[in-house]
Design a protein around this nucleic acid. Structure first.
Lengths: 336, 336
DNA sequence: TTGTACGCGTTATCAC
DNA sequence: GTGATAACGCGTACAA
């Protein structure tokens, strides 16, 4: 491996002069500068970023922890973070916790030993609290993305889940639905709680009683509660519409409905949070679409501001609006 | 930041003793070992992996470069790579080249300066050759994933694109199609060339003449050639089926067809390479499905073998089979 | 404008 | 069993 010393020897200068050329620091005559640059080219020299980090006490690396790398919401968010990071001169270390606390912990350990300058953290659930404590203990700045963690004040970029959920459900109500089910993610995740709250808001605003038998708590990765759905459909007064907590739940739900011979939207309307990304043929779902790319981009911006101390001490809370997009998965309830 | 010396001082031993405890190396009395461990806990000590890498001359990090982080094929591949890497004690540094040579180069530079132990490389195109040269020049082991680069012999994990394409097209032929269009990715990408070859194989085997007017070279990210498609449909003898080079092309194509009022599969059959992942509602496409997760997992295995010198000198070429999955996007051609 | 001495946090070697 | 020393590749402070 060619080092700064090899270059120095070749150029008949000290290592320091080479270092100064690399970093454009100090005064160097144009002549030696270009001579050294040429030699670096010829010898294929690449600075060792670890050695540099060791002395500089910064890595110029940020870490992005997401809970599901297969979900288009998070991959789009990742693209936003990646672009912003690169633009600001940082590298991004991706981590995929797979909604698992164990994996998340492994990534936190790696983050600590790698000494990244900051973390963009989309928590697996409320139980991620200790992981945030660990980061704080080690003075690693972080920004929470998409999901808040109760009891942890910090910079955050979240969506307006409550608002968005209310709009979706009111859309259903305006179509004439009054029996509206909610198939949600785990209530240990803040967005799921907010979406439930928005759902409740909408019902209350329209004088519809909340019926617990219409509430299903599943998880954001897969819809696995076919039997519960079936018994919900067999209720004396079954739902005519379902609000799914995220895109994957909506997909799983629809698959199950198709299997059960329930047509959407003729017999059952389905709406959901988050869009489905590029791989969908016929935009079909009525959704509350979130600006995923912006989540990542703004998160990085916030994080870098915090690292550079360019922010006021109080925590910044950015809330990104979701947009109600009405498509063909929602329609008036079937006539009695 | 607490260092090995802080621990040593607290424990009244030398830094060396602490190091030995950390790495379970050398002889240490059980008593001091547990005492030191306890102190490390209390002081929240985390080894600095950069300092360690500097002296050890290895980082235990691998890099994965993929061309499209929004494509389910590559995210699934990434999951496979991630799991395998973690299992073998390596961290994974993701890079998303976005099918862009410029971004790819930036990632290669970062790879060099980070001194990763090896690279899993899914090349943007044949033009990535120089990037591979760079890696080789710096003696960084790499494994090519999914896409070969002509003129670069190395370990590879690829799919049987030619075979799979032939099977897909023969499936169409067996349904009665004889005018079969190909909407392909850039021919600067090896898989696109292989799929074209498989397409040609199938036609030749069945005595169907290749008609250049039925060939469209687009790109794997988006289908953007609506006008060309339209003129193809206005041909005196238009195609009755299309073979799309990958999943995103198929989706873009279908969207365009819907727009033009062409029904699939009644008026036009569509088949494609790669499946669409978890976010698809009603598995619809007839596809050649590739074991994406395996691509990543086996790639890591190969790479680590190579790093450890556990492999024979000759290059390993793993070819993963694709599976023809017949669904509802393909049907006999419309009766004349 | 250029060079010297030192330190960043860790481990290998070898002596005690 | 334990410890002193040097080395990994680089940048800062200070001299020259």
């Amino acid at each position: 491996m060619v080092t700064i010393y090899d270059i120095a020897k070749q150029a008949n200068v000290s290592a320091m002069t080479v270092s100064k050329v690399i970093n454009n620091t100090g005064k160097i005559s144009e002549k030696t500068r270009s001579r050294i640059k040429k030699i670096m080219e010829e010898m294929n020299y690449v600075p060792n970023s670890m050695a540099r980090s060791l002395v500089l006490q910064e890595t110029k690396m940020l870490s992005l922890l997401i809970p599901d790398i297969t979900n288009p919401f998070f991959t789009t968010l990742a693209r936003g973070a990646e672009d912003a990071a690169m633009r600001l001169g940082y590298k991004l270390l991706f981590g995929n916790s797979d909604e698992s606390l164990t994996k998340e912990k492994e990534y936190v350990d790696m983050i600590l030993s790698t000494r990244v300058d900051g973390v963009l953290f989309s928590a697996a659930s409320d139980l991620s609290g200790p992981h945030l404590q660990t980061l704080r203990l080690h003075r690693i700045p972080f920004v929470l993305l998409d999901r808040a963690v109760p009891g942890h004040e910090c910079d955050t970029v979240t969506g307006d889940s409550r608002e968005g959920a209310r709009k979706l459900v009111e859309h259903l109500i305006s179509l004439g639905h009054r029996r509206i089910a909610l198939v949600n993610g785990s209530l240990a995740v803040s967005t799921a709680r907010d979406r439930l709250a928005g759902y409740n808001d909408a019902l209350k605003l329209n004088d519809i009683a909340v019926d617990d038998t219409l509430l299903l708590e599943s998880n954001y990765k897969h819809f696995e509660d076919g039997p519960l759905l079936r018994s919900m459909l067999e209720l004396p007064d079954p739902p005519t519409a379902v609000f799914a907590g995220n895109n994957f739940l909506a997909v799983g739900l629809i698959r199950k409905l198709l299997e059960l011979g329930v047509r959407v939207p003729e017999q059952m309307s389905v709406v959901c949070f988050d869009d489905l990304g590029a791989s969908v043929i016929d935009p079909f779902f009525t959704v509350a679409s979130q600006p995923a790319y912006q989540f990542g981009a703004m998160g990085i911006q916030l994080l870098v501001d915090r690292i550079k101390g360019a922010t006021t001490p109080e925590w910044k809370k950015i809330v990104l609006p979701s947009e109600l997009v009405v498509r063909s998965s929602s329609a008036p309830p079937p006539a009695e």
